[in-house]
Amino acid sequence: MKKNIGKLLSLVLTISILLAVVFYNNNKEAIVIKDEEQTTKSTEISNDIAFYDVKEQYTPHLGKSFAGFKEALGFKESQNNYFRVNKFGYLGKYQFGKSTLKLIGIYDSNMFLKTPELQEKAFIANAQRNKWVLRRDIKRFVGKKINGVEITESGILAAAHLAGPGSVKKYLRSYGKNGFSDAFGTSVRYYMKKFSGYDTSSIKPLKKVKVKHSRA
């Protein structure tokens, strides 16, 4: 009888040990799986944060608005630096030449360079004048493709800012054969493409436009 009880206890103890080992191993695998899942999720979250930081950069999104057009063009010209003068003497945020400024009634280039508000007015006035000069070409060519670039009104106005409306007329009417590049090698075609599709409908074509400004 005692031998039977001893065998029974030994069997029970063996089964208990086996169950404990199995339970421990299962728990260990579960912990490993959980840790792996947590690591994967942590990695995914880190990647999302890194992507957001690089992609967004906390900059305003002006899109294809007229404000976006002005800021994009100003950045290309001078990195939006109102006080910049390049080696050829072009002035301010939009890199105006003195001859162009005189056409819109600005004769004091030093005051112009020191007055951001005046530069913004000059940009609008020059765009209005260019739109009037190019009004027939805008009507005729917008929507067509020249040298692989779709022609848009904003592209035409940007190119006119770069090269003058006369050069843009020659480019369009020759279907791209009569091109123009500035002293840095920037072409009419490049500006047509880079600044295409912006909303410039707020610019009204004016034949004679002068910038009104008050002296301090």
Rank of each mutant, 00 (worst) to 15 (best):
S201G: 04
K34E: 12
Y82K: 00
D182T: 00
S167V: 08
V21N: 03
E71R: 11
V32G: 00
D48G: 10
F195Y: 09
E153D: 01
I31W: 12
Y24A: 13
V209C: 02
V209A: 02
K121L: 12
I33R: 13
I33H: 08
L101Y: 04
A122I: 02
I106M: 00
P205C: 05
N81S: 09
A158S: 06
Y52R: 15
K93R: 15
F88E: 11
F83V: 00
H213E: 10
K64H: 07
K41E: 12
D137T: 03
G105V: 06
N147H: 06
N25G: 08
L73N: 00
K64G: 03
L172F: 03
T59F: 09
I151R: 01
L162K: 06
I146S: 02
P116N: 03
K98E: 13
Y24M: 10
G179L: 01
N147C: 02
N80D: 08
L91N: 05
S167G: 10
S202Q: 13
V22Y: 11
F88T: 13
G197N: 10
V54H: 14
I203H: 04
D108S: 02
S42A: 14
R173M: 06
Q119D: 07
L9I: 14
S202A: 11
L18A: 13
D35S: 12
S42Q: 15
G166A: 10
Q57A: 08
K34Q: 13
S78F: 03
R140F: 04
N26H: 14
K64Y: 11
D182W: 04
R135V: 06
L13K: 09
I203N: 05
R129G: 07
Q79M: 10
I104K: 06
N178R: 13
F195R: 04
E36S: 11
Q119E: 08
A160V: 04
Y82S: 09
P116S: 01
E71L: 15
V209T: 06
N80V: 02
L101N: 03
A72W: 04
V149G: 03
V188H: 01
S99V: 12
V211C: 02
F83A: 09
K2Y: 12
V133P: 05
F88G: 10
L206M: 12
H61L: 12
V12G: 01
E44H: 08
K210F: 13
L157S: 01
Y82A: 10
Q128M: 15
K131Y: 07
D53C: 08
L8Q: 07
I31N: 10
S10P: 00
H61M: 11
